[in-house]
């Protein structure tokens, strides 16, 4: 019952992910895992995924199927997908068979898309996970990005696919919790941060997203060096030159720049899907509110 997926073309930062390699921060490894966890899970439910692994891609992904048929589910952002040249809906799932070509190109929105499978990806687990860490070069396919010529093997049997309603999405500012160094920023700077509009720069990857601070919220607000501490995904660091940078799933394990806030878990997926050039604003919430949002999304 083996299926082979031949990668014909892959956009930059295309990797194997699973739910992540947690618990190793003190050994110098951040957890990785999907940039948009919600979309990764939805793609898995659409596929009736047999395990917690899948492909995260950006921009484009073309693959050809060999061997036994398999159900593929896709979700995340809005891409355009075709099978053998015919348009298929996004998001969706379907069974593909030997010789079928799935081709994905960018659509109107989003950065990261996901493919999940009704079988298991046959890849070794490294330190308890198959997620690719682009920083530590671990997991996935030898710690590397997927590229044309790679072949993935799927084995086993999946679960029944689930029909799920499309994610209605959330608008509005990205919500955050004031950070472990917010008291180092003046009241004016903090107020300005919570009302200003930033833009997502082109310097974005699985490790971090740099923002453009056109309103100069942090100009001249530089803070002397801090003792470095562990960091978490969603932490909003202010670099020495005033550039705000949001740390993402493959973040550095520790950091010594001041952190004004941390994006809440419920909004980090949405933030990850913002394209370069998008406007973004931040709104403070309490930890209790962030937890209510998480629990209501169960």
């Amino acid at each position: 019952m083996t299926t082979l997926l031949q990668i014909e073309r892959a956009g930059p930062l295309t990797t194997i992910q699973d739910h992540g390699r947690f618990g190793l921060l003190q050994h110098g490894i951040s957890a990785s895992g999907p940039m948009d966890r919600g979309a990764f899970d939805r793609a898995g439910r659409r596929a009736g995924a047999a395990d917690d692994s899948g492909i995260e891609f950006t921009q484009t992904l073309d693959l050809t199927v060999a061997g036994e048929p398999v159900r593929i589910g896709w979700d995340g952002g809005v891409f355009r997908a075709r099978i053998n040249g015919l348009d298929v809906p996004w998001p969706h799932s379907t069974v593909v068979s030997k010789g079928d070509c799935l081709s994905i190109i960018p659509g109107p929105s989003g950065v990261y898309g996901y493919l999940r499978f009704g079988k298991m990806l046959e890849l070794p687990s490294v330190l308890g996970s198959r997620a690719t860490s682009s920083r530590s070069r671990l997991g996935g396919l030898g710690g590397r990005m997927l590229q044309a010529g790679n072949e993935l093997t799927l084995i086993g049997e999946g679960l029944p696919p689930q029909h799920i309603t499309d994610d209605p999405g959330t608008d509005g500012p990205i919500r955050f919790i004031w950070g472990v160094h917010s008291e180092h920023f003046s009241r004016d700077v903090r107020q300005h941060f919570a009302t200003a509009t930033f833009r997502v720069s082109a310097a974005m990857d699985r490790m971090s997203v740099r923002l453009i601070d056109a309103e100069n919220v942090f100009k001249g607000a530089s803070i002397l060096s801090l003792v470095s501490e562990p960091v978490m995904p969603g932490d909003i660091q202010i670099l020495g030159d005033g550039t705000p940078i949001v740390l993402m799933r493959d973040h550095q394990p520790t950091g010594g720049y001041p952190r004004i806030g941390t994006v809440i878990s419920a909004d980090l997926d949405r933030f990850a899907q913002l394209r370069s050039g998008s406007s973004v604003a931040f709104a403070p919430v309490t930890v209790e509110h962030a937890h209510q949002l998480l629990r209501s999304s169960l």
Binding site: F22, L25, Q26, V227, S228, E229, P230, T254, V287, L294
Partner: peptide
């Protein structure tokens, strides 16, 4: 508590936000 991460002068305590009361 999912993870305890010591660093130079602090300790990070990561918890399950769906279960723990902070």
């Amino acid at each position: 508590v999912l993870d305890v991460v010591p660093s130079l002068v602090s300790v990070l305590v990561r918890y399950d936000p769906r279960k723990a009361n902070p």
